[in-house]
Computed example of a mutant assay.
Amino acid sequence: MIMRFLKKIPAGMMVVPMLLGAIINTFLPEVTNIGSFTTAVFTSAGANTAIGIQLFCLGTTLRVRDMGGVVKRGGVLLISKFVIGAAIGIVVGKVFGPTGVLGLSSLAIISAVTNSNGSIYLALMNSYGDTVDQAAMPLLAINDGPMLTMIAMGIGGLADIPFMALVAAIGPILVGMILGNIDKDLSDFLAPAGTILLPFVGFCLGAGMNLTNIAKGGAQGILLGLVTCLIGGAFIVLCDRFISRRPGYAGWAVATTAGNAVAVPAVIAEADPSWAQWADVATSQVAASAILTAILVPIITSWWAKKFGCPKFPKDEAQKALFEKH
């Protein structure tokens, strides 16, 4: 009964536990903060570990022979999301200064738009994509965190970011990929764990969210979520369709704000203290965007995949043959 319910909801295996975790963290945080294994598994304390293990297991699915397709599809999604987020943020910063426009600073915009929720992407690709789409998730994980935000703000001259602060934690992906290519049996053993961990990752990420942040983020936080999803998503879909020659469902699937992005404004402010006075407001706005896009993106992706086709739901025989070929 539970599984049937989760399968009816776009990315339900990820989104439902995430919302449950957010509800508990908002109204009854003491339930999961009793310590020991309970706190380790059912709070945000376990998020990085769960995501790291998930990325390691997914890394084992990356084959050298498939890297061309993975890099092409994932690269287009990664670069287009970075470009649109950086472009909007840099323009706002250059034209309106650090205070931004309509209550949104360039710090908030770049933090939200350049960071995607890889776990939601993976859940959606399990429902609508193919193995190459799924294998692109570790590549997309590059934008999950402060690295690309730092790069964008550094390139735009909006912040002074030390080079070493740009180093991303991609160790689990690389180690998994190396081991998976050395021993396919090891890959076959570990690969399913990437999917199995989805509800755990979802709950842990949700346990780091507070639904009141939508209120704290105010109208600006909602606006930021809409910019991330609709403006950022539309640009990524165009790139996915015209560069990758894909239907565009994967483009919508990355039009989220990562849960980890909530911590990005503070990281930027620590690296460049001149942003400290805007960090708190940006944090609440990014949190609102993370929650809003986690709800909107699965709905939009599901509708788009069924209307314009995807490997799991080809719209005609010609498209089905094309998907089977690639």
Score class of each variant (00 low, 15 high):
A112H: 03
T114H: 11
T114K: 11
T114V: 15
N115D: 13
N115S: 14
S116F: 00
S116Y: 00
S116R: 01
N117L: 10
G118K: 02
G118E: 03
S119Q: 13
S119I: 12
I120E: 03
Y121A: 14
L122I: 06
A123P: 00
L124W: 06
L124S: 12
L124N: 10
M125S: 09
S127Q: 15
Y128G: 01
Y128R: 06
Y128L: 06
G129P: 06
D130H: 04
D130A: 06
M137G: 03
M137V: 04
L140G: 13
I142A: 13
I142L: 15
P146L: 10
P146G: 05
L148V: 03
T149G: 15
T149E: 10
M150W: 10
M150P: 06
A152P: 13
A152V: 07
I155Y: 05
I155W: 08
G156H: 02
G157M: 02
L158Y: 01
L158K: 01
L158H: 00
A159H: 01
D160Q: 07
P162D: 07
M164N: 14
A165L: 07
A168D: 08
A169V: 04
G171W: 08
G171I: 11
P172R: 08
P172D: 07
I173R: 05
I173E: 05
L174I: 13
L174D: 05
L174T: 02
V175S: 08
M177D: 01
I178Y: 00
L179F: 07
L179T: 04
L179W: 02
G180H: 05
N181R: 10
D183A: 10
D183G: 09
D183C: 14
K184L: 07
K184A: 10
K184Q: 12
L186A: 14
L186P: 14
L190F: 10
T195D: 12
T195V: 13
I196P: 12
I196G: 12
L197P: 00
L197V: 03
L197Q: 00
F203E: 00
F203R: 01
F203P: 00
F203T: 04
A207Q: 01
G208S: 12
M209K: 07
L211M: 12
L211R: 06
N213G: 09
N213H: 13
N213Y: 10
N213S: 12
A215S: 09
A215H: 09
K216T: 11
K216M: 13
G217K: 02
G217D: 03
A219E: 09
Q220L: 06
I222R: 07
L223S: 11
G225M: 04
L226F: 10
L226P: 08
V227I: 15
T228G: 09
T228Y: 05
C229E: 08
L230M: 12
G232C: 07
G233T: 01
F235E: 01
V237G: 03
L238D: 07
C239A: 09
R241A: 02
S244M: 12
R246P: 03
Y249P: 05
Y249D: 10
G251C: 06
